[in-house]
């Protein structure tokens, strides 16, 4: 009975370690998707010079599922003319429709702050602002990727080790 219990504890903590390791990898994947979305937005502005609402709607069909609803809902909000600024609409759309569990508060804050800058800039500045955010995102992704092997190993090891330690402590 003790053996079965111990094994269950070790399996559970190992799985927890694997979960955190996977979460780390998925965070990088989500940030890469965010980067790709900004790249497409920049392209839309550069080549079509259409209004943001239309660009968001078009992008909504081309981005990963996790960003799709956010872009579409933001586009609808802008089209209805609800008397809110882009900053307010962007923030609310992020809070209501962007639920990516792998992203941290820091990632969300960076994304929300982009909405504070868009909407009232000239062509050059609009593109430069998006480009600046892409650079920041790129830096963040590079740092996370650099630490990925170490961190993932750490999560796995900690998972197993904490399980073993817990079992030893109880027995």
């Amino acid at each position: 009975m003790k053996l079965i219990g111990s094994l269950l504890v070790i399996v559970a903590t190992t799985l927890m370690g694997a979960y955190y390791s996977n979460k780390y990898k998925m965070r990088i994947k989500s940030l890469l998707e965010m980067y790709r979305m900004l790249q497409m937005l920049s392209g839309e502005i550069e080549f079509s010079r259409g209004v943001l609402g239309e660009s968001f709607l078009r992008l909504g069909n081309r981005v990963a599922k996790e960003y799709q609803v956010f872009l579409q809902q933001l586009s609808y909000r802008l089209a209805e003319g609800n008397g809110q600024t882009l900053e307010e609409n962007w923030k609310q759309a992020v809070e209501e429709h962007l639920h990516i569990t792998y992203l941290t508060k820091e990632d969300y804050d960076l994304f929300i702050s982009l909405g504070e800058q868009l909407g009232y800039l000239d062509y050059e500045m609009e593109l430069k602002t998006i480009s600046m955010y892409m650079d920041r995102l790129q830096l963040k992704i590079s740092n996370l990727e650099k630490e990925m092997t170490t961190k993932c190993k750490l999560y796995h090891t900690l998972g197993i080790a904490s399980g073993c330690l817990f079992v030893l402590f109880i027995i």
Binding site: I45, R49, G50, V51, L52, G53, L78, G81, G83, T85, L86, N89, L118, G119, Y120, L121, D122, Y123, M125, E126
Partner: peptide
């Protein structure tokens, strides 16, 4: 004034250069 310009330009002043 800034907000009015945002709404006039459908949140995209760059598109109306």
């Amino acid at each position: 004034m800034r907000e009015t310009m945002e709404f006039v330009s459908s949140y995209s002043l760059y598109a109306y250069e």
